[in-house]
Simulated assay, not measured.
Amino acid sequence: MTPYTLLVLLTAVERLAELRVARRNAAWSLARGGVEHGTGHYPAMVLLHTALLLGCLAEPLLATRPFVPELGWPMLALVLAAQGLRWWCIRTLGPRWNTRVIVVPGLPLVAAGPYRWLAHPNYVAVLAEGVALPLVHSAWLTATAFTLLNLPLLGVRLRCEDAALGRSVPG
């Protein structure tokens, strides 16, 4: 097993850990009257993020992509920074964090941690990782495809979250 394969597999394990946290947090939110929004786009998100991991494994192997240190090491640093930001978001939101859009009525918006500066810092982590993880091993087709497919999906997600949270949604 190559170090890159191990990195991608560890990322997959991390995603499974996120899903466990999300499942627990969904139960917490729903028990407090939480309402789920935007269920229609969620399966597409799961499929796209799964495809990202599969592409990261397949492209370097099938297209014999080399590890280019000048690209790979900075991208690895960006992957690690994205993970740090993601878990900072998860920790800051506590039981309110979820992979789904579930809002408990009456709870104020969180304005701590990275949410002091950005409305949606978790998606900064998603964007960074979607580019950086494939590029650790020169999988530029995977990085490009994920980004081009993720941007419109992320637009749907952001509009959904903003509407669910009662934020004004730009035209």
Rank of each mutant, 00 (worst) to 15 (best):
M1L: 15
T2M: 00
T2R: 12
P3Y: 14
Y4D: 07
Y4H: 09
T5Y: 13
L6E: 10
L6I: 11
V8H: 05
L9P: 10
T11R: 09
A12W: 10
R15H: 08
E18G: 05
E18A: 04
E18Y: 00
V21Q: 10
A22H: 02
A22C: 10
A22K: 02
R24K: 13
A26D: 13
A27H: 13
W28Y: 13
S29V: 08
S29P: 14
S29R: 15
A31I: 09
A31M: 07
R32M: 15
R32K: 14
R32C: 12
G33W: 15
H37E: 11
T39W: 03
H41T: 10
H41E: 12
Y42R: 00
Y42L: 01
A44R: 13
V46K: 07
V46G: 04
L47W: 14
L47R: 15
L48A: 00
H49E: 14
T50M: 12
T50A: 14
L52M: 08
L53T: 10
L53N: 11
L54T: 07
L57G: 02
L57A: 02
A58C: 13
E59Q: 12
P60N: 06
P60I: 05
L61D: 00
L62I: 00
L62C: 00
A63W: 02
T64D: 03
V68L: 15
P69H: 04
P69F: 01
E70F: 06
E70G: 06
L71E: 01
M75A: 05
M75W: 06
L76S: 05
A77M: 00
L78V: 15
L80H: 00
A81F: 11
Q83Y: 08
G84S: 03
R86D: 03
W87L: 13
W88I: 13
W88Y: 14
C89D: 09
I90M: 12
R91L: 07
T92E: 15
L93Q: 14
L93A: 04
G94Q: 15
G94K: 14
R96C: 02
R96P: 01
T99S: 03
T99K: 06
R100G: 01
V101K: 03
I102T: 11
V103N: 00
V103G: 01
V104D: 08
G106H: 06
L107T: 06
V110N: 14
V110L: 12
V110F: 07
V110C: 15
A112H: 10
A112W: 11
P114R: 12
Y115Q: 10
R116E: 10
W117F: 14
L118M: 01
L118T: 00
H120I: 03
H120M: 08
P121N: 03
A125R: 07
E129I: 02
E129R: 01
V131M: 11
V131W: 12
L133C: 02
L133M: 07
P134Y: 08
P134N: 11
S138V: 09
S138P: 14
A139H: 10
A139R: 12
A139S: 14
W140M: 11
T142A: 10
A143C: 14
A143F: 12
A145W: 15
F146E: 06
T147L: 15
T147K: 13
T147H: 11
N150H: 14
N150D: 00
L151R: 12
V156L: 07
R157K: 10
R159M: 06
C160R: 04
C160G: 05
E161A: 03
E161S: 03
D162M: 13
A164L: 11
L165N: 05
L165A: 01
S168A: 08
G171V: 04
G171K: 11
